[in-house]
Structures are given as structure tokens and as C-alpha cells.
């Protein structure tokens, strides 16, 4: 075994930028294939917005996977619940939603998003205590319990709101597009991108600049050692689970506004995307999740434009390609 003496210089760890370059390379590669620069810009903006929404929904799940090795197949329930709660806030304030003033619109949108996050986070508390706590360390039972929880949540939403699709119109000031020459970028997509970036930066700040973040990062890597240092990781996990659930609720509101509709099984189409993002990003890696979400959205948008028939399988193909390149995801944080 070769040992470095204290006086030897330590080899500088290489910064792994290949995953960061991947979406950039993919976007540049698409310019000649798409042909029209304005179409390319529109598709790229759409990809970024969609990617940010998926990232917000998936970020909590990746930490839950990474930190406690819990397979939560019911994560989609928080998305749907978040969206439905927002409809409760929107309903009595239709006039404010339709007002042609950004501030009036935001006065409804912000409380709706915050309430959705609070309710989804509280539901996360109940789910963790009731469904997850008894089955820690038992993957098969986790899948059964959380899938069962998702079905119960969906059926409860059906029972309370009925089977019909509930319209959720975009606030008036978020309709339309910013026009730059012959490029049109939807206003709401810009907002979604900004919110996604803000969430990403906030998570990074917490993870890298606070002791709580240190504990989460250390727990993702080796939770047993964190406990041996005297930290009760179960409490930490509960906090992460609730935060992840709250973010899924926020993502639900944003996705509902993006689609301008809410229905009880709205998370079904998203669950596959979210799991693909978590897996290709690397379990427990927020950076990997961020890049993975953008890649998934790019493949969906570019692929849907260029080869519509491929759209159905494009994300699975992406996952296969990434896992062949890096079997533990873009950034492997855990040893799992």
C-alpha cells in the first residue's frame, strides 16, 4: 500500500464536470437537427421549465432514497394533494386570479403554494410515522405500503373532489409569452425556471453551508456512523421526508398550473419521470437530480419534436444510456 507522507502534496481531486457538460452538449447538438434557432430556443426554454418542475418534485425523493434507503412509491400522492389544496385557495379568489395585475395574481398564487407545501409536508409527517416507520430496512414492505398509501390517497381525492378534471387556469399576468424577435418564451416557463433555480440554490446552501446540511450529506453516505457520532438520524430523516413532501406539493401546484388542470391520478405520468431522474442522477445526489431532471425534460421536448413516436420510450432509453456509462448514476453519493 502506498502511503502519502504528511509532507507530500495531495493529488488534487478532479472536479467531475462531465455530467454538467452533458445537457449543454445535448442542447448544442440539437441546433443543427432542429434547424430553426427560434424553435430550438423555445424547446430549450420549455425543457428548462419542465426540468425545474421535475427537479422540485424529485429532490425530496432522492434525499429520502439516499439518506434512509426508503423506497417511497407513494411520493406522487404529495404532488396530487399539493395541486388539490391549491384549487381550494384559487376557487374563492377567481377574480384575483383573473385580474390583470401581477401583484394581485401573486397574492393568490403565493399563499396557495405555501398552503400546499404545508399540507403536503404535514401529510409527509403522517406517512412517515404510520407507513414508513414500521418497515424501515424492508424494501418489499416499503413498496407495498407506499404503493398502498398512494392508492388510498388517490381514492380519497376522488371521493372528495369527484372523478372529473378540475381546471386550474394560469393567473392572467402569467399567460402569454415574452417575445424576442421571432422567439416566444412562455412567461410561466420563465417563472417555473426561476423557482426551480431558487429551490436548487436554497437546497445547495443548506447542504453545504449549515451543520444540518453536513448531517444530511454525511447521513446519505453513512448513516450508521452519523448515529455513532451521537446524532439521531431518524429525526433528521423525518425533517427531510417532510421537506421532500412539501417540495412535491409545490411541484404539484406548478405542474397543475403548467397543465392548467388537476386530477387525482395526475402524478401517475410524473412518477415514472421522477424515478428516472432520481436513478440517473445517483441516489441521494441533489446535483445529479438537477442535471437528470434537465436531461429528462430535454429528451422529452427535443425527442417529442424530432421523433414523436420515440417520445414514449425516450426517457427509458436515456436511463439505459446513462446507467451504461455510469452504473450508479451521474453522481454516485451512496454505495447502494
Amino acid at each position: 500500500m502506498t502511503e502519502l507522507a504528511a509532507t507530500d502534496p495531495l493529488p488534487k481531486p478532479k472536479r467531475d464536470i462531465a455530467p454538467i457538460l452533458l445537457p449543454i452538449a445535448l442542447a448544442l447538438l440539437m441546433i443543427p437537427l432542429i434547424g430553426s434557432p427560434s424553435t430550438w430556443l423555445t424547446l430549450t426554454a420549455a425543457s428548462l421549465a419542465m426540468g425545474m418542475m421535475i427537479f422540485i418534485m424529485a429532490s425530496g425523493l432522492t434525499l429520502v432514497f439516499g439518506l434512509m434507503d426508503v423506497l417511497n412509491f407513494g411520493h406522487g400522492a404529495f404532488i396530487a394533494v399539493g395541486a388539490y389544496v391549491a384549487t381550494l385557495v384559487f376557487a374563492p379568489f377567481v377574480a384575483s386570479v383573473q385580474a390583470d395585475s401581477l401583484w394581485v395574481n401573486l397574492a393568490v398564487l403565493a399563499p396557495a403554494a405555501l398552503l400546499s407545501m404545508a399540507v403536503s409536508g404535514a401529510l409527509g409527517l403522517v406517512v412517515e410515522r404510520v407507513l414508513i416507520l414500521p418497515v424501515y430496512g424492508q424494501h418489499l414492505k416499503q413498496i407495498l405500503m407506499t404503493t398502498g398509501g398512494l392508492i388510498v390517497a388517490e381514492q380519497t381525492l376522488y371521493a372528495l373532489w369527484g372523478p372529473q378534471i378540475i381546471p386550474m387556469p394560469l393567473p392572467t399576468s402569467l399567460r402569454g409569452s415574452f417575445i424576442f424577435g421571432d422567439v416566444a418564451i412562455a412567461k410561466y416557463r420563465v417563472l417555473a425556471t426561476l423557482i426551480g433555480l431558487a429551490v436548487f440554490i436554497a437546497i445547495q446552501l443548506v447542504l453545504n453551508r449549515t451543520k444540518l446540511g453536513l448531517l444530511i450529506r454525511a447521513g446519505v453516505e453513512n448513516r450508521e456512523m452519523v448515529e455513532a457520532l451521537g446524532y439521531r438520524i431518524r429525526r433528521l430523516f423525518l425533517g427531510v421526508f417532510m421537506t421532500g413532501s412539501a417540495l412535491a406539493g409545490l411541484g404539484g401546484v406548478m405542474w397543475a398550473l403548467y397543465r392548467e388542470q388537476v386530477h387525482a391520478s395526475m402524478s401517475d405520468e410524473l412518477t415514472v419521470l421522477i424515478f428516472v431522474v432520481v436513478i440517473i442522477g445517483g441516489l441521494g445526489s441533489i446535483g445529479g437530480c438537477f442535471i437528470g431532471a434537465i436531461l429528462v425534460a430535454m429528451v422529452a421536448n427535443y425527442g417529442g419534436f424530432l421523433v414523436p413516436k420515440l417520445a414514449l420510450v425516450s426517457n427509458i432509453l436515456l436511463m439505459v444510456a446513462i446507467l451504461m456509462w455510469r452504473p450508479r448514476g451521474l453522481y454516485a453519493v451512496t454505495s447502494r
Binding site: K211, L215, V220, E221, E224, M225, L229
Partner: peptide, 21 residues
């Protein structure tokens, strides 16, 4: 522990900050 179990993703300083409970 036998495996040392240092937190690879954290710096030396951060590893010790966590230990200083």
C-alpha cells in the same frame, strides 16, 4: 470502526465539525 467510515464527500474540517457535537 474498522472501515474508518470517514465521510468522503465532506472535507477534513467538516468531518471534525460533525464530530464536535
Amino acid at each position: 470502526p474498522e472501515s474508518m467510515a470517514v465521510f468522503s464527500d465532506l472535507t477534513v474540517k467538516e468531518n471534525l465539525m460533525l464530530a464536535a457535537r
